[in-house]
């Protein structure tokens, strides 16, 4: 079985370069789906997003559900990049790319991984503004999104 390629990065990364690397590594795949999540630019220049992980546990938990994706879909490759540390508006936070023979597996596996990253991977997110800080809790929708996959066999 091909292994998922997972990195938690304390520095900025280039999601377009990740997408190009995935495509050139998977020239035999008919379908590649990539997702980029970025820190929203709400027009507040003082806004910073700070993400923290639990070193060791976070990697292990992500590996667990990435391997689950390989069991559920016939994937040729699965790439996950996730930032930690302080991010300015517009900076990429997350990249997920999947390559498969056909599009459905690629679309669904990226959707699956994103739902897990949002509310089942040990990350914590804090918004820092000139007026003060606040922790961002997962939304009800995030938990509902995750349940879609758990209801399936």
């Amino acid at each position: 079985m091909t292994r998922p390629d997972i990195r938690i990065l304390p520095w900025p990364f280039d999601p377009e370069a990740e997408a190009r690397a995935l495509r050139s590594a998977c020239s035999a795949a008919g379908a590649i789906v990539t997702f980029i999540g970025q820190a929203r630019d709400e027009g507040d220049p003082s806004l910073q997003l700070i993400l923290e992980s639990c070193p060791g546990l976070t990697e292990k938990e992500i590996e667990g559900f990435a391997e689950n994706a390989f069991r559920r879909w016939p994937l040729e490759a699965l790439v996950i990049r996730h930032r930690i540390g302080a991010m300015a508006p517009g900076e990429p936070i997350v990249f997920v790319g999947a390559a498969s023979a056909h599009r459905r597996a690629a679309f669904e596996s990226v959707d699956f991984i994103m739902d897990y990253l949002k509310s089942a991977a040990p990350f914590w997110k804090r918004e820092c503004r000139a007026q003060g800080d606040r922790w961002i809790e997962p939304r009800v929708e995030d938990h509902q999104d995750l349940k879609r996959w758990q209801a399936l066999p």
């Binding site: 639990c54 292990k60 997350v94 994103m114 949002k118 509310s119 990350f123 914590w124 922790w135 997962p138």
Partner: peptide, 29 residues
């Protein structure tokens, strides 16, 4: 709750654990 790098149930025996982490709801992506 995590002991080492594994999430454990609340009734798990932690007498051998040198490190216990408390994790509030996760929010990534």
């Amino acid at each position: 709750i995590a002991a080492g790098d594994a999430i454990i149930p609340r009734d798990a025996d932690i007498r051998q654990a040198a490190e216990i982490a408390f994790l509030p709801p996760f929010s990534g992506g």
